[in-house]
């Protein structure tokens, strides 16, 4: 059953987990054959911004070797045939220019969300 993953909580332990846990489980389920789409809303629209870099975390002698690569994780979802959408109003409210987004992400106006949601028989809101 086609399922929409709405990701709203952003940067939740992403440095510790080296990814976003909802994107991770989306990848894992897609690998198992699940039909999925992703809608970024709220603070999670920031995941679509290309060029973000959170490398360099260090505590004492401990250095992070594999920082999260959220844009790459989104791009690889697209490459696996997962539709990725983002709420345009949430981008505008945060001053994020659409030109700064990674390619392939579809923008949807908040006023059109109901129409988009109608396409999905199952919706999980994270």
């Amino acid at each position: 059953m086609l399922t929409l993953q709405i990701i709203e909580t952003a940067y939740r332990a992403t440095l510790e987990e080296q990814d976003d846990p909802v994107m991770w489980i989306t990848h894992a389920m897609r690998g198992a054959g699940a039909e999925l789409a992703v809608l970024l809303r709220g603070n999670a629209v920031s995941y679509a911004v290309a060029g973000q870099d959170c490398s360099g975390l260090q505590f004492g002698a401990w250095k992070q070797a594999q920082p999260p690569r959220l844009v790459a994780d989104l791009s690889s979802l697209l490459a696996k045939g997962v539709e990725v959408l983002a709420v345009e109003d949430d981008l505008v409210e945060r001053g994020i220019a659409t030109a700064s987004l990674t390619e392939g992400i579809q923008l949807v106006a908040r006023a059109k969300l109901a129409e988009v949601l109608e396409r999905f028989p199952r919706i999980w809101h994270w």
Binding site: L15, Q18, A28, Q64, Q66
Partner: peptide, 19 residues
């Protein structure tokens, strides 16, 4: 981490006890 395509050593997962 199979999703990341990395073995245990390459994943080098952060652990708070090590921090």
């Amino acid at each position: 981490n199979a999703v990341h395509g990395r073995n245990e050593a390459d994943e080098a997962h952060p652990l708070a006890r090590e921090w």
